[in-house]
Design a protein around this nucleic acid. Structure first.
Lengths: 353, 353
DNA sequence: ATTCATAATTGGAACGTTCCAAATCAGTCA
DNA sequence: TGACTGATTTGGAACGTTCCAATTATGAAT
């Protein structure tokens, strides 16, 4: 074992570079920032010494001086859900290319946790924040952030009167499209399964479901909407409950894809084949939706693209200084695959003709 | 529209607090750090003014002064894979409780991207790094990090001679256990499906598979190991290829759960029921494994727990200054559920008796 | 030679903390 | 009273950048 003395030597700074390259620290700083003011040959010399001495830029110092950072924060309420994981990679992709790095925190729907992480991010001087707020978050919770002029963009769940930008999807229209499709396929008893009833997303999707039913003068019975955790496990319990009903549904729109997968699982547990014996439609279009069997018919909100757009919106606001809050409602489209039984029906129809 | 003048006023700092509370900035600093040196009444007074003026601590400044931060970095190669998402939430949970915040970056297996994010994290002065290295990462890629004394813990994939701590799982033993189980259930033609053959994880699991076969004097034909992307889609293609074989397998150990789900999908596409007509075993035990139908038999590595342990190991090293590199090989256990057909066999056996 | 413009470089004062050494305070004891 | 405690408090110099204003070098025009 050696004493590794080399490790103990102190950090190399711009003045070390300056001394070694025979210029002033100001010049080194200019080079670091890629300023066009410095002469090509000195720039080369400086860059050479930087490499040679193994200099690493100290962003803490820079942040302190300029009172701004190349950091953005992203806080989600459930990273375990593919939807949010994909959202995060979408964000990551664009912030990385912009030379930013992201703090990521998971709140697990705990509002206290959220308060802590947001405070911590503020102390670290994030330049902006993308947040999918935990259930029960109020405008007041975001106030300190927006008062201090930090751009915030809400994703997925909007908060009324928060005065910040938001990026949501057209949940109402998506749900309507899905239910209309089921009705067109001949279904008359359609359930709405999964999700926490006290969220604005649930509310919007459920309203879309109901409006489509009403439009077709169908029964929108309360027993047919069954809440649950918005997870695969929640889907299993929701479909079980639905199958207890005296007058069983023959199709369901699910709160999200995770629930839809759970519903398929629950169906199979009862020896029912999703897509053939029961139509199921999801919401989100997570990556597995395409490859699952049966492939999931779902309302595509493109989580990764949503993350990208959120990040772009945030960066725009950061660069613009203080920008107007804008609310974007992303459009959404029904992508018809196997799980709603459409393909099977087509096949039988073809066989008959 | 108002001109929101209030927003423009500059940041409040410790000297503002000091002035307002009638003490020196040193005292305020002491209070901030919870030092026992300060008198209770002044502490209270200071805390009051802090709240009153809406002070927010500037960690950039503190980091600069103390040349250390409360930031750790975590870089994963595919956040879209539930395994890594869960790993990340495990890490998040423990670092958050320790008052740290995490930079999270996704490399998408791009080694260039990885280089960039690691460099960026270094500039930001992370106190430690948890990394699941991208395919093809070499010890040399981590050298600058370890030379500068930043603790690093490798997760999932170890790198030979990197001189850093690592936390992997006993892939060889897990694979053996799984295959032994299949053999005990009467299977004789067992495939190994999915994964990139040039990774150490693949290598270890495949060796375990092979050793179990050899142990039982069974044929370990090369055609039965079929690589693919370690994803759901990869699983679909792998099983398709396996079913092309003249002498088809009746069971498969899959590289990971994502592949296993894909294999189930592919089986169903051919009207084969996983668990009844074909036994499949996964690897990882991601959260959906339990609720899927059929519930997935899999080798449990507890990704979230793994993230936690990795974070604990890292924090230990950070606190200890310079610690010995330790390699932990997490133990692993086969959790038998439905997809390997065990339950079904038991049922038929019971029916016969 | 002098002036002027332009290009390139530079010293030094910030930024908001922490931390050391030193100073002040309030008792206590001779 | 004065010296001696222990408990609190406090200036001021760092930390590694950036940025302003000012300086020097270079060359062209007079």
């Amino acid at each position: 074992m050696f004493w590794e003395d080399a490790l103990v030597k102190e950090r190399v700074t711009v003045v070390d570079i300056a001394r070694a390259a025979g210029v002033s620290k100001s010049t080194v700083s200019l080079v670091l920032q890629g300023s066009p003011l410095v002469n090509e040959v000195t720039r080369a010399k400086v860059n050479a010494t930087i490499r040679e001495l193994g200099y690493v830029y100290n962003r803490s110092a820079a942040n302190l001086r300029q009172s701004k950072s190349k950091i953005i924060g992203i806080v989600v309420n459930d990273l375990t859900n593919s939807f949010f994981a994909e959202l995060a990679v979408g964000v990551d992709a664009v912030v990385q290319s912009a030379g930013f790095v992201q703090f990521l925190a998971n709140t697990n729907e705990k509002i206290e946790r959220q308060r802590e992480v947001v405070a911590s991010m503020r102390e670290h001087g994030v330049s902006g924040l993308i947040i999918s707020p935990a259930r029960g978050t109020e405008a007041a919770d975001l106030a300190p952030l927006v008062d201090s002029g930090i751009p915030v963009v809400l994703v997925v769940r909007d908060i009324a009167d928060a005065g910040v930008s938001s990026l949501t999807s057209d949940n109402h229209a998506g749900a309507m499209a899905a239910v209309r499709h089921l009705i067109a396929r001949g279904h008359r008893r359609i359930a709405f399964l999964g999700g926490f009833p006290d969220t604005v997303v649930f509310e919007a999707r459920m309203r879309g479901y109901r409006d489509a039913l009403l439009e077709a003068r169908l029964d929108a019975a309360d027993v047919l909407v069954i809440g649950s955790a918005p997870s695969r496990a929640g889907g299993v319990t929701a479909i079980e409950q639905a199958m207890m009903l005296a007058d069983r549904p023959t199709a369901a729109l699910c709160f999200n894809d995770a629930v839809a997968f759970g519903v398929c699982d629950g169906l199979r547990a009862r020896r029912l084949e999703p897509g053939a014996d029961f139509a199921v439609i999801g919401f989100d279009d997570v990556i597995e939706a395409k490859t699952a069997v049966p492939a999931l018919t779902t309302v595509s909100v493109d989580p990764q693209g949503m993350g990208q757009r959120a990040a772009e919106l945030l960066l725009k606001q950061i660069n613009a200084g203080r920008a107007e809050a804008e609310s974007i409602i992303g459009s959404v489209r029904l992508v018809v695959r196997q799980s709603c039984g459409a393909a099977i029906e087509r096949r039988t129809r073809e066989a008959l003709s």
